[in-house]
């Protein structure tokens, strides 16, 4: 009776685990530096479904095609479309914040907020800011 019960529990656990596997949250890393992306991916891979974009433009496409992206790591200084342009495009496209956005940049935090505000961006969409170099453990904890 007891074994039987245990078996059932095991089964339930398994089902739940696989369900969780399927339900892995999607994370998008937008950074022109491949090493940075790789580093972050290595950390995030185990618990998240990691997507990458080497600039803002690719980032926008990725967000569009993956509506279920829940976290975005965004570098600011990028060729083609930088972080500011990406935010602008995103805020034009979506009425509401589609995902939590974390800025990862070498630029000081204050500089970003100054520039973003002067460009008319809604900085409320920015959930967190990590000044490069940063400790990935801390990031993992927070998200």
């Amino acid at each position: 009776m007891k074994t039987c019960l245990n078996k059932t529990n095991e089964k339930a656990k398994k089902t739940r685990s696989s369900a969780m596997q399927e339900m892995k949250r999607k994370v998008l890393i937008i950074d022109d530096d491949a090493i940075s992306r790789m580093m972050m991916k290595l950390y995030l891979d185990t618990s998240f479904d990691v997507l990458e974009a080497e600039n803002g433009s690719v980032g926008i496409d990725t967000v569009t095609s993956h509506a279920d992206v829940s976290v975005i790591f965004l570098d600011l200084n990028m060729p083609k479309m930088d972080g500011y342009d990406f935010l602008e495009a995103l805020q034009k496209k979506y009425a509401e914040q589609p995902a939590n956005i974390y800025i990862t940049s070498c630029s000081p935090r204050a500089e970003f907020y100054g520039n973003a505000t002067s460009r008319g961006l809604n900085t409320n969409w920015v959930t967190g800011y990590y000044e490069k170099p940063f400790m990935m453990e801390r990031v993992l904890q927070e998200i």
């Binding site: 530096d33 090493i35 940075s36 790789m38 580093m39 200084n77 070498c106 490069k132 170099p133």
Partner: peptide
């Protein structure tokens, strides 16, 4: 910037 790369 270089530090970030190195760190990564």
């Amino acid at each position: 910037t270089p530090l970030a790369i190195i760190q990564a």
